[in-house]
Design a protein around this nucleic acid. Structure first.
Length: 205
DNA sequence: TATTCGATCCAT
DNA sequence: TGGATCGAATAC
């Protein structure tokens, strides 16, 4: 049985769970992706970028549940993104799965992402990752640690050295740009490109 | 009940 | 850089 105890790390240290998640593999519907980019969201009510910042709602209810569950939400009316719920029950910390490298089921992955020009683009974004794994809202509130859900999380083939992990600001969030809770594997080509949410500031007058 | 807008992606 | 597209969250 795999050791998932680190997923239950206290919410104050959810960034450590995010770092740990890098290199782990998510398998669903015939495709396996090695996670290369993630983002941590605190459940302590002090993270304005978290979907749970204003308390429990029908959408974010899963975030308050046990660690190891998927919190899947729809965005822009057409895409789905997934978080792995972390921490103790009652506290809504979670880690958004932002990108991965397809390491198994390559042909299936390609067929699911016709827009991808290169293999490295197959899962280079949170919604692309979901598309490659053929996961949608039906995966919400399912477990990735008990083998009973559509997706399963398994340990890295080779652990990612701490020196290979880079931290930076989270992508697309409208608040807390300053918190460096986006983590990715250094120089990995499957990491999604960073674009700040706000209109670009003029750097040249 | 009405309106707003997003933890995105893709083509232009 | 803008358009697609819709439901949850917030305003009324």
């Amino acid at each position: 049985m795999n050791d998932y105890s680190w997923l239950r790390i206290p919410a104050a240290d959810v960034d450590r769970a995010a770092r740990e998640l890098l290199g782990w593999r998510l398998t669903a519907n015939g495709v396996t992706a090695r996670l290369t980019e993630v983002e941590a969201y605190s459940g302590l009510g002090q993270d304005p970028a978290s979907h749970a910042h204003r308390g429990m709602t029908a959408r974010n209810e899963v975030m308050f549940g046990p660690a190891g569950m998927l919190y899947v939400y729809q965005i822009y009316g057409m895409h789905f993104c997934a978080n792995v719920v972390c921490g103790e029950e009652g506290v809504a910390s979670a880690v958004l799965l932002r990108a991965g490298e397809v390491v198994d089921g390559l042909e299936t992955a390609r067929s699911r992402r016709p827009a991808a020009k290169r293999d490295r683009d197959l899962a280079a974004g949170p919604a692309k990752l979901m598309q490659v794994l053929a996961l949608d809202r039906r995966a919400n509130a399912t477990s990735v640690v008990d083998g009973g859900g559509p997706a399963t999380l398994s340990p890295p083939v080779a652990p990612v050295p701490a020196a290979e992990v880079v931290a930076g600001p989270r992508v697309g969030v409208t608040a807390a740009h300053d918190v460096p809770w986006r983590f990715w594997i250094k120089d990995d080509p499957t990491v999604s490109g960073y674009r700040r949410h706000a209109p670009r500031l003029r750097t040249r007058s």
